[in-house]
Amino acid sequence: EKVLKRMREIKNELLQAQNPSELYLSSKTELQGLIGQLDEVSLEKNPCIREARRRAVIEVQTLITYIDL
């Protein structure tokens, strides 16, 4: 939940920025750090946690791809 919240904050900052190119590098670095945090999530045998992590990774990767474009 914390990762998704921060990812959404970054997305809003990028969309509202007057000059978003200044934010791209720092935002991309922070998003890659969020992916690292998601990699540390213990998936164990809980399919709900596994699915939530998968969705979060996809959302963060989508935003990274947007920045790259």
Rank of each mutant, 00 (worst) to 15 (best):
V3H: 01
V3S: 03
V3R: 00
V3E: 00
V3C: 05
V3N: 00
V3Q: 07
M7L: 12
R8Y: 08
R8W: 07
R8I: 09
R8A: 12
R8P: 00
R8C: 13
E9K: 03
E9Q: 07
E9W: 01
E9I: 03
E9F: 01
E9A: 05
E9D: 03
E9T: 06
E9V: 04
E9N: 01
E9H: 04
E9S: 02
E9L: 02
I10G: 02
I10Y: 00
I10A: 00
K11H: 14
K11M: 07
K11R: 11
K11W: 06
K11G: 02
K11C: 08
K11V: 04
K11F: 00
N12K: 12
N12A: 13
N12W: 04
N12E: 15
N12M: 11
N12D: 15
N12H: 14
E13T: 06
E13A: 11
E13F: 00
E13V: 09
E13L: 08
L15M: 06
L15S: 09
L15E: 15
L15N: 15
L15R: 06
L15A: 11
L15H: 04
Q16L: 11
Q16M: 14
Q16Y: 10
N19D: 14
N19V: 10
N19R: 07
N19H: 02
N19Y: 04
N19G: 07
N19F: 04
N19A: 08
P20I: 05
P20Q: 09
P20L: 05
S21T: 10
S21Q: 10
S21M: 09
S21H: 13
S21P: 07
S21D: 11
S21N: 11
S21E: 14
E22V: 06
E22N: 06
E22C: 13
L23K: 06
L23P: 00
L23F: 04
L23S: 02
L23V: 12
L23C: 13
Y24M: 05
Y24D: 03
L25C: 10
L25S: 08
L25A: 10
L25V: 10
L25R: 09
L25N: 06
L25K: 13
S26G: 07
S26N: 02
S26P: 04
S26E: 10
S26K: 11
S26M: 06
S27C: 10
S27T: 08
S27W: 14
S27R: 13
S27L: 12
S27H: 07
K28A: 03
K28S: 02
K28M: 07
K28L: 07
K28R: 09
K28H: 04
K28I: 12
K28F: 02
K28G: 02
T29L: 12
T29D: 14
T29C: 11
T29S: 11
T29E: 12
E30I: 01
E30H: 01
E30G: 00
E30P: 01
E30R: 02
L31S: 00
L31P: 01
L31M: 01
L31H: 04
L31E: 03
L31G: 00
L31Y: 02
L31K: 00
Q32Y: 07
Q32L: 12
Q32V: 09
Q32E: 14
Q32F: 07
Q32S: 07
G33I: 04
G33E: 11
G33C: 10
G33Q: 14
G33S: 13
L34F: 00
L34N: 00
L34M: 11
L34K: 00
L34E: 04
I35V: 07
I35A: 06
I35D: 03
I35W: 02
I35Q: 01
I35L: 15
I35G: 02
G36L: 11
G36Y: 04
G36S: 11
G36D: 09
G36I: 09
G36Q: 08
Q37S: 10
Q37Y: 09
Q37P: 05
Q37H: 01
L38T: 06
L38E: 05
L38P: 03
L38I: 07
L38F: 04
L38S: 03
L38A: 05
L38H: 00
E40C: 09
E40P: 12
E40Q: 13
E40S: 13
E40I: 11
V41R: 11
V41L: 14
V41E: 11
V41H: 11
S42Y: 14
S42G: 14
S42V: 09
S42A: 11
S42K: 12
S42F: 05
S42I: 10
S42R: 12
S42L: 09
S42W: 10
L43S: 12
L43Y: 13
L43F: 13
L43I: 15
L43E: 15
L43G: 12
L43T: 13
L43C: 10
E44V: 07
E44G: 08
E44K: 05
E44Q: 05
E44H: 04
E44I: 04
E44A: 12
K45S: 13
K45W: 08
K45I: 11
K45L: 13
K45C: 13
N46I: 04
N46Q: 10
N46H: 05
N46M: 03
N46D: 13
P47Q: 11
P47S: 13
P47N: 10
P47A: 09
P47C: 06
P47V: 07
C48A: 15
C48G: 13
C48L: 13
C48D: 14
C48Q: 14
C48H: 11
C48P: 09
I49S: 12
I49Y: 06
I49W: 05
I49L: 13
I49M: 11
R50F: 04
R50T: 13
R50Y: 08
R50A: 12
R50D: 14
R50S: 14
R50I: 13
R50W: 10
R50P: 12
E51Q: 09
E51H: 11
E51P: 02
E51M: 07
A52R: 09
A52Y: 05
A52I: 05
A52F: 03
R53L: 09
R53P: 01
R53S: 13
R53N: 11
R53M: 11
R53F: 04
R53C: 15
R53E: 14
R54T: 08
R54M: 12
R54W: 07
R54V: 05
R54K: 10
R54N: 12
R54S: 12
R54P: 02
R54Q: 10
R55G: 06
R55W: 01
R55S: 10
R55M: 08
R55V: 07
R55C: 10
R55P: 04
A56F: 05
A56S: 03
A56G: 02
A56R: 02
A56Y: 02
A56C: 08
A56P: 01
A56I: 05
A56K: 01
A56N: 02
A56T: 02
A56D: 02
V57Q: 11
V57R: 14
V57K: 13
V57F: 10
V57T: 02
V57Y: 12
V57I: 13
V57P: 04
V57A: 10
I58E: 15
I58K: 14
I58F: 08
E59V: 00
E59N: 02
E59H: 02
E59Q: 10
E59W: 01
E59G: 01
E59T: 02
V60T: 06
V60N: 08
V60H: 01
V60L: 12
V60E: 01
V60P: 03
V60D: 02
V60S: 05
V60Q: 02
Q61F: 02
Q61L: 05
Q61V: 02
Q61G: 04
T62N: 15
T62D: 12
T62G: 13
T62W: 04
T62C: 09
T62L: 05
L63F: 09
L63S: 00
L63R: 00
L63T: 01
L63V: 05
L63M: 08
L63W: 04
L63P: 02
I64W: 00
I64V: 04
I64T: 04
I64E: 07
I64R: 08
T65N: 12
T65W: 05
T65Y: 05
T65H: 03
T65A: 12
T65D: 07
T65P: 02
T65I: 00
Y66W: 15
Y66H: 14
Y66A: 08
Y66F: 09
Y66M: 09
I67N: 03
I67G: 00
I67E: 03
I67T: 01
I67M: 07
I67D: 05
D68N: 13
D68S: 05
L69M: 06
L69W: 12
L69Y: 05
L69G: 15
L69P: 01
L69T: 13
L69K: 15
